[in-house]
Design a protein around this nucleic acid. Structure first.
Lengths: 129, 129
DNA sequence: TTCTGTGCAAATCTTTTGCATGGCA
DNA sequence: TGCCATGCAAAAGATTTGCACAGAA
């Protein structure tokens, strides 16, 4: 995935196999926890270490390449993208990205200009509906 | 605090000193982490154990008497109250309760009726502004 | 009196760290 | 080649559990 290499180059992080694998995993799953990432990458890359996942998630967060999503269960991570809201399924726990409506954003900006906003909606996801 | 005793009675949780102390602490601070609660209660109640705080926060959450607030740092808790949003200070880390505007609520309800919603705004709190 | 809750200590997870070695630029 | 990143193992931190005893109802 050439795009990830560039992303890392631009952030002065070396494009190691491990980092690319983590980003691929997040791209594939959308949202994943530290040990979901670890267990999955270990299949194709048995020598990878948990500590490497922790260290890389930390540096990728610092560079704002990945973001943390809180769901009151196991913390998950996603590749940072356009602002969006999260739908957290009250049945299966899945996280879905949903639109962060511009009307809502504007309403908040009135009182808190240039603020980062996190909106989570707890309801049924598209599979459980 | 008589009100807390009733709250506990109604949830079939015994109104122990420890539970009342935890609820008082949360009422006083607004938002506190497990060990902030522990350190503070220990002053006036030296025999209290960390495990008791954990167990009680778990049962109080289960009964929806307290809620968890995620701030991407140390998880904090608050006494469950009217729906509201959180302002999380990007300078000092403080959490403030702010209004969850009805217009925003309505906008979300159109698409996700009867959903629980969490909105966090990262900006400067009233003290750091 | 009964049964839930507490406190302690141990067990379990989770996350971080130090350091020698490996590998990208 | 020069550094940053990796992997391992150990350390540190956070959370949970089991059990005997205490205390609310």
């Amino acid at each position: 995935m050439q795009a990830f290499k560039e992303l890392l180059d631009n952030s002065s992080l070396k494009a190691t196999h491990q980092r690319i694998a983590i980003l691929n995993e997040l791209a594939k799953k959308g949202h994943a926890s530290i040990d979901e990432i670890y267990e999955s990458i270990k299949q194709s890359f048995p020598s990878i270490s948990l500590a490497t996942i922790y260290k890389n998630i930390a540096s990728l967060k610092e560079k704002n390449i990945v973001s943390e999503v809180c769901n009151h269960q196991k913390t998950k991570f996603e590749i940072t993208k356009e602002p969006h809201a999260h739908l957290i399924c009250t049945k299966c726990g899945a996280i879905e990205d949903i639109e962060f409506k511009n009307s809502i954003n504007k309403e908040i900006e009135k009182d808190y200009p240039n603020s980062k906003k996190e909106l989570s909606i707890y309801s049924l996801c598209s599979k459980c509906i």
